[in-house]
Design a protein around this nucleic acid. Structure first.
Length: 151
DNA sequence: GCCAACGTTGGC
DNA sequence: GCCAACGTTGGC
């Protein structure tokens, strides 16, 4: 069982968008390391949902993997901003799991809180220059985030 | 708005 | 295969 964190800009796709949709195909990721993590995700695994480029910067809720990765359809769509002319239908380059909404935290777990908590201070999210939009999270970090989300 | 940290591209 | 130029991410 692995634990994950995904980043999303609140103005683009927020935890409220996910709650409204119920489930969503996580398309458009065009980074190989992130792609490898997406492919490793298994149904039922928990996914922390982080708002980047937002105020507050915070983990705002919890999702889970509803379905493991399938070829990302946007790579084949010339009208999509995520179109990849180098992608081959027989050998897709990019993959998308489906996430399911679980909960929106009543208390957003802010970057500030994470930095000031011993158990979360070392998260990849907080490392200087880390731009990975899909990250593995240690179990102890995951548990600490849930604890912080309880008022 | 700035800029550091990366990832990617393309000329050689 | 190197590396400079460029584009993007994302915190501040």
């Amino acid at each position: 069982m692995s634990f994950w964190l995904v980043k999303s800009e609140a103005q683009v796709y927020s935890i409220d968008s996910l709650r409204a949709d119920g489930t969503t195909l996580w398309d458009g990721v065009r980074n190989y390391q992130a792609r490898n993590y997406l492919k490793a995700m298994q149904p039922g695994e928990p996914v922390l949902f982080y708002h980047s480029n937002s105020d507050p910067l915070a983990i705002v809720g919890l999702a889970e993997v509803a379905q493991s990765a399938q070829p990302d359809p946007s790579q084949f769509d010339p009208d999509s901003p995520y179109y990849d002319p180098g992608a081959d239908k027989d050998k897709p380059r990019w993959f998308s799991p489906i996430f399911r909404f679980k909960e929106k935290f009543s208390v957003p777990v802010t970057r500030e809180m994470l930095l000031h908590t011993a158990a979360t201070r070392e998260m990849i999210l907080l490392q200087k220059g880390s731009r990975l939009s899909i990250q593995p999270v240690q179990e102890k970090e995951f548990e600490a985030v849930l604890a912080l989300s309880v008022p």
